[in-house]
Amino acid sequence: MPRLLASIALALTLAGCATTPRTPDTTSVTFIVIRHAEKVDASRDPDLSPAGHARAQALAASLGERELAAAYATEFKRTSQTLAPTVQARGLAITPYPAGQPATEFAARLRAAHPRGTVLIAGHSNTVPDIVAALCACAVAPMADYEYDRMSIVRLDADGSARLDVTRYGAPSPAP
């Protein structure tokens, strides 16, 4: 009988461990860096095209229920429009940053402001690779002008080590 009680107690203890909610990771920060979605034309500050709005929705869907600590977009409409579905679903404001700010300065600002959590950043084909490289201290491939589906995920651990994962979201970017 004592063995049976011990077995039941062990089973209940293990079952309790299996259902215990995971504690959020508070020792690292994740930066998700994307380029704005497809634009309606080549003017200086265009809106998103219908394909761009679809990609913005795809971004929100790809992030699912992921909690965000902050969201950043340049002063151009297309970057904030790309983040809009994601931030609206979370009741989060977009923090603007100047597109021309040097990537190393912007990355330092991000790291100082966000020691943990997940931060979403929208930039441009000529700024995203430099921002990602400055965040991870690693080599990053250039971004073609027609590439809209790249999502760079930089995770900085508490010890300062960085990992870069590059994935795709939404419809594949059409080749020229």
Rank of each mutant, 00 (worst) to 15 (best):
residue 54 A to T: 13
residue 76 F to W: 10
residue 40 V to M: 15
residue 47 D to P: 06
residue 85 P to C: 08
residue 37 A to K: 08
residue 54 A to C: 08
residue 88 Q to H: 11
residue 83 L to N: 04
residue 67 E to W: 05
residue 61 A to I: 06
residue 70 A to Y: 11
residue 45 D to M: 02
residue 88 Q to T: 08
residue 85 P to Q: 01
residue 67 E to A: 11
residue 40 V to H: 09
residue 44 R to M: 06
residue 47 D to L: 12
residue 68 L to W: 00
residue 45 D to Q: 00
residue 37 A to F: 04
residue 46 P to D: 05
residue 67 E to T: 15
residue 57 Q to H: 14
residue 54 A to W: 09
residue 65 E to Y: 11
residue 38 E to Q: 10
residue 60 A to T: 09
residue 85 P to N: 06
residue 69 A to N: 13
residue 88 Q to K: 13
residue 63 L to C: 01
residue 76 F to I: 07
residue 78 R to D: 09
residue 82 T to G: 07
residue 82 T to S: 07
residue 49 S to E: 10
residue 39 K to E: 04
residue 83 L to I: 01
residue 74 T to M: 10
residue 36 H to T: 05
residue 37 A to Q: 09
residue 90 R to Y: 03
residue 62 S to H: 08
residue 65 E to C: 02
residue 54 A to M: 10
residue 58 A to C: 04
residue 62 S to M: 12
residue 66 R to K: 13
residue 82 T to P: 10
residue 76 F to C: 12
residue 77 K to E: 13
residue 70 A to W: 14
residue 40 V to F: 09
residue 84 A to D: 11
residue 75 E to C: 12
residue 37 A to C: 12
residue 58 A to M: 08
residue 41 D to F: 02
residue 73 A to N: 04
residue 50 P to V: 07
residue 85 P to L: 02
residue 75 E to N: 12
